[in-house]
Amino acid sequence: MANPLSKGWKYLMASFDNKIDENADPKIQIQQATEAAQKQHQQIMQHASQIIGQQKQLEMKLNRLVTDRDKLQEQARQAIQLADKSANEGDSVKAQEFNNTAEVFASQLVAVEQQLEQTTALHQQAEVAAKDAVAKSKESEMRLKEQMSQIDALRAQADQAKMQESVTKSMDSLNQFGTQDSSVPTLDAVREKIERRYADALGAQELTQNTVSDRMAEIAQSGTDMRASARLAELRAEALGTSATPKGQLEAGVEDAEELIDETSTPSATPETASPEADAPEASADESEKK
């Protein structure tokens, strides 16, 4: 029976890995895949270079052994010739020495030939391995180029997906303004605030228009307009030499305008105090008639 703790730990690790894969940034994963592919290619190239280097080393050793073999063969041949010459001259001691030297050269030659044979076999194996390593390195290079092109395509797709997500998020923010950030007001809240302020302003304006001072200002303005109309009619009549407006109506209009202005300017005055002021326009009108 499996250990529950070990089983639970494996489950947690698998769940944790799954969460990491779900929340991981695709561009980071692409970068990891790129580094892994480059590392693998680098390892293959390094291994191939080592094999080729070993083949080159065996080749140099083989050339050196061939040189040593040729040299020993020449030295052994010269020793035999000198021994034969000494024997023909009757010098048996010298002939024996040359023969011994020739035997030494022959022994060395045998050892070199054995090394040469072994090195030749190793060189052939290394040559085959080097050719295979070169082929694998070329294959790895082609595979790396293909992977890099795929990685570039994936990176472009990741960028496009990220931009699309940004556009979608922006559109959601426009449709539901302020729902993503609690510090930003919503459109409904802003609209309600503006409508409330506008309604308060309309209410204040309505109250202002209904005040006593506002009514007094309207009455005063109306009196001023009446006096201006009457004065304009008088000037027109004087300029044209005609009586466009009867004199009684003109005086009555002036008196009404002055009374209206006086009433608005002194609303708390009594009838006794208002009568002298009301007689002043009549006096001015009589003076104008006398002139």
Results as ranks from 00 to 15, higher is better:
Ile261Gly: 04
Asp279Ile: 05
Gln42Tyr: 14
Glu255Ala: 12
Pro246Asp: 11
Gln55Pro: 00
Leu154Gln: 10
Val254Met: 05
Ala156Glu: 15
Leu122Ala: 12
Ala87Gln: 13
Ser137Glu: 15
Asn88Gln: 09
Lys85Cys: 04
Gln96His: 00
Ala129Cys: 11
Ile219Phe: 13
Met142Tyr: 08
Lys19Pro: 03
Val184Pro: 00
Leu58Arg: 01
Tyr198Trp: 01
Asn99Lys: 11
Ala106Phe: 06
Asp152Val: 06
Phe105Ala: 04
Gln38His: 14
Ser288Asp: 02
Asp279Met: 10
Met142Phe: 06
Val93Cys: 14
Glu255Lys: 13
Lys10Gly: 08
Thr120Gln: 14
Val66Asp: 07
Val212Asp: 09
Gln57Phe: 12
Gln81Met: 06
Ala76Tyr: 10
Pro26Ile: 03
Ile20Asp: 04
Val104Trp: 00
His123Ala: 14
Ile20Gln: 14
Asp152Glu: 06
Gln42Pro: 01
Ala130Gln: 02
Gln57Pro: 01
Val104Arg: 04
Gln157Lys: 14
Lys145Met: 09
Leu174Val: 12
Gln147Asn: 09
Arg69Leu: 11
Thr242Ala: 07
Ser268Pro: 02
Gln209Pro: 00
Ala278Val: 13
Glu139Met: 04
Gln54Gly: 06
Ala199Lys: 13
Ala220Trp: 05
Leu116Asn: 09
Pro185Ser: 10
Asp17Ser: 04
